[in-house]
Amino acid sequence: MPTINVNGRDHAFEGNPEMPLLWFLRDVAGLTGTKFGCGMALCGACTIHLDGVATRACVTPVAAALTAKVTTIEGLSVDGDHPVQQAWKELNVAQCGYCQAGQIMQAASLLKQKPKPSDADIDATMAGNLCRCGTYTRIRAAIHLAVVKTGGAA
């Protein structure tokens, strides 16, 4: 039986391999941290890591995840202490919080690729993640703070 590795754990999958990974995670695996916002790769609410790279789960078929490692917000860190998560808490970034799992996964992926992003880098990479509550200025600040928390730089 095909399996999908999510946050280090194998999940069996018997259904239609065209099912978007988002719905597998939420409805089948019961991992509801990854959110549904648009279903068309327009909002970033469903952002997960596929082999460490930010990916929109709503347009990624389960088939594409069979050979990859999937990380969701639930698996980003053991104790919720990833520098991005810490920074998000310290600056009270969230309003309703619904978009924030996607924002955090996108930001963590950005910092992996660019450990010291400028505001322009942040805007370019985070522009795929909508926040209807309008937390953008705090997201920018929190990403800079996460850089500091990572230790290497300021």
Binding site: L31, T32, G33, T34, K35, F36, T72, I73, E74, L76, G80, Q85, W88, K89, N92, A94, G97, Y98, Q100, A101, I104
Partner: peptide
């Protein structure tokens, strides 16, 4: 600090859809 911060940043917060 927001009382729901920990849940929100770890994906544990329960919205209607969850």
């Amino acid at each position: 600090a927001l009382v729901d911060n920990d849940d929100i940043v770890t994906g544990k917060a329960t919205f209607g859809i969850d």
